[in-house]
């Protein structure tokens, strides 16, 4: 019983982190699915989302607003607006001019953008980490015979529910709306879609905006969950989310969700049963193994190279 409780605790922690990774991974996978490039600066957009949310929360609290759901919703909206604008601007400035060139050129441009944004926040907000207030406290506790307590906090439930809402909304958007249909068409064949009268530039911008908005949601959630943010906050999370995207099969949206959850669980199992210091090693190791043995990921389609 004791072991089971411990195991379920790790599982819950893993699923919490994993669902947030999945939100970030959507941004990587959608961009890759459409223009075939790794948006290296996506982690920074997530970090900017977290910072904006924190600024909004602090500002609203200082203004005397006390009703928690309102604070959170306003902060979330602020973070989504700022991150989406950032995503749009990054695509416009750094990716659109180099689109279609040799594969490495957009990637180097993206790395440059990532360094730029990291230092932009670093210079504006300082390099030290800033505490994120724990707004949602408490939770359910389960215990077998008192020794080990398994807890499911309200924060974790918030993360699950928010992720679920976002994912459902995204799936509906992609499958039902006009823009969503255009997104699918562009990811299947960009040239053909533009011949059929789809404004591909607009669709690509829309992809960046959607990815950035979801990253901002993840930024608020994980910022609150971890309790602090710093300018390097996005780098590792971005890598993890990229791993999740690759794990699930890059370009596939359900794959990103699945990959995020698997990565989150394997990470928390490592820190629960081995050592917390090596959890990053495990996720990078996982990434390397997948790329070596099954580069298409779990749900991805194989890429055919045409001459």
């Amino acid at each position: 019983m004791q072991d089971l409780l411990y195991f379920s605790q790790q599982l819950i922690n893993g699923l919490t982190i994993g669902s947030a990774y999945a939100l970030i991974a959507i941004g990587y996978t959608m961009v890759y699915g459409i223009i075939g490039m790794i948006n290296f600066a996506h982690g920074e957009i997530y970090m900017i989302g977290a910072y904006t949310a924190l600024i909004a929360i602090t500002g609203l609290t200082a203004l005397g607003l006390a009703w928690l759901p309102l604070i959170l919703i306003v902060a979330l909206l602020c973070a989504m607006i700022v991150s989406s604008s950032m995503g749009w601007a990054v695509e416009r400035v750094a990716y659109r001019p180099v689109r279609g060139r040799h594969r490495l050129i957009p990637l180097i441009s993206a790395i440059g953008m990532s360094i730029f944004l990291q230092n932009y926040v670093h210079l504006a907000q300082g390099s030290r980490n800033v505490g994120f207030p724990a707004l949602i406290e408490g939770g359910f506790n389960f215990s077998a015979d008192g020794a080990f307590e398994m807890s499911l906090s309200y924060m974790q439930i918030t993360i699950f529910v928010t992720t679920l809402i976002c994912m459902t909304a995204l799936s509906l958007f992609i499958s039902r709306s006009r823009t969503g249909r255009a997104c699918r068409a562009v990811s299947q064949d960009l040239g053909m879609a533009s011949l059929l009268g789809i404004d591909t530039n607009r669709i690509i911008s829309a992809t960046f905006i959607i990815g950035a908005a979801l990253a901002a949601v993840a930024g608020l959630l994980l910022g609150m969950y971890y309790g602090s943010v710093d300018p390097l906050f996005g780098f590792i999370a971005g890598l993890k989310a990229f791993t999740a995207a690759v794990l699930g099969g890059i370009g596939s949206i359900p794959g990103a969700m699945l990959g995020g959850l698997i990565l989150g669980v394997s990470e928390s199992m490592t820190s629960g049963y081995l050592s917390g210091e090596y959890k990053d090693v495990v996720s990078f190791g996982l990434l390397i193994l997948i790329l070596l043995f099954k580069p298409t990921g779990l749900l991805g389609k194989p890429e055919v190279e045409k001459i």
Binding site: V93, V98, I105, S109, G112, M113, I115, Q118
Partner: peptide, 20 residues
Amino acid sequence: SEYRMLIFGAAMVLMMVWRP
């Protein structure tokens, strides 16, 4: 000097756009 990395990042992007 604290703008060093900021400038590096921007320079990398600009190089790729204008003079890869």
